[in-house]
């Protein structure tokens, strides 16, 4: 061909084992692990397909979502309120307890390496226990009911929030603290007027965000008997009352959307109010 482009000068970038080897190796390991998992967990296609067919039937039975009677609807509404109460109370308790813990784990407040290391490890350890496990433990301690649920959410989020707060404290600007100290303030005053105003917005917005996400967690802790709407949901699924189950799921979705909207507005108000 006469209109051909001139041959490229110099070396072309290598497209071979050296440049793409690690990538191929990673993909190979990932795919191998996936296949191993499918075989080991016995995820048979036949079972999957027959299950899908049954799932289709269930979806059809869920339509239309309905609470059947008004009195059931009121019961669900009450349980939903309880769920929200659990989320709010659990998160607030966690936040109030997490604040001093956060200061303890922050490097610029307690400049002791041992305390810092131990508190961080402890926070990490407790953080890896799921809310639902906490719920089961608290049920054994305080009995069935929403109180156990609130305690479960508080203990599960205490450490996550403490870690967030300690990071916020560590990244806080030093200059206000130095200013307070330079004008003769005590160390306590430097924390109160130098650090607290900086982390308060972080504190409130994180608490709001956790209330949102805990509304979701609070719906499932009822499954093990720790109060709220989850109890009704798992009951309706167990007795195969699909219309009521789907109605409860819709109620949860509506509640989460509502909390979402409220917390977004509060956060925006806080940002503009400052």
């Amino acid at each position: 061909m006469s209109g051909m482009l001139p041959a490229p000068q110099g070396r072309l970038p290598e497209y071979g084992w050296r440049s793409h080897g690690p990538g191929f190796l990673g993909i190979g390991i990932a795919v191998g692990l996936f296949v191993f998992g499918v075989v080991r967990l016995d995820l048979a296609p036949a079972r999957f397909l027959s299950g899908l067919a049954r799932l289709g039937d269930i979806m059809a039975l869920m339509m239309p979502p309905s609470p059947e009677t008004w009195s059931r609807f009121l019961v669900y509404l009450d349980a939903l309120g309880q769920t929200l109460a659990i989320a709010v109370l659990g998160t607030t308790t966690a936040a109030v307890l997490a604040l001093p813990l956060g200061f303890l784990a922050a490097h610029n407040i307690i400049a002791n390496n041992a305390v810092h290391f131990l508190s961080r490890r402890l926070l990490d350890t407790v953080r890896s226990v799921d809310t639902l496990i906490w719920a089961l433990i608290w049920i054994n301690v305080v009995g069935l009911g929403p109180f156990a649920g609130a305690l479960a959410i508080a203990s599960a989020d205490l450490c996550a929030l403490a870690k967030l707060f300690s990071e916020a404290i560590e990244t806080a600007d030093r200059r206000p603290v130095e200013g307070v100290l330079a004008s003769g303030g005590s160390r306590a005053a430097s924390v109160r007027f130098g650090i607290v105003p900086q982390i308060l917005p972080v504190f409130v917005s994180q608490v709001l965000y956790y209330i949102e996400s805990n509304t979701r967690s609070a719906t499932i802790i009822g499954i093990v008997g720790a109060g709220g709407i989850g109890l009704h949901l798992s009951e309706m699924i167990r007795v195969l009352e699909w219309q009521q189950a789907s109605f409860i799921i819709l109620m949860v979705l509506a509640a989460v959307a509502m909390i979402d909207a409220i917390s977004r507005r509060v956060r925006r108000a806080m940002m503009s109010g400052r």
């Binding site: 967990l41 016995d42 995820l43 079972r47 999957f48 299950g51 899908l52 049954r54 799932l55 269930i58 639902l132 979701r216 967690s217 719906t219 499932i220 499954i223 949901l233 798992s234 699924i237 195969l240 189950a245 799921i249 949860v252 979705l253 989460v256 959307a257």
Partner: peptide, 21 residues
Amino acid sequence: TVPDLVFALIFVVAFGLGPLP
């Protein structure tokens, strides 16, 4: 928005007990 455990509850009914759901 629907928690994974709620999906699991429903799928256990559809697919039977075990890791699949």
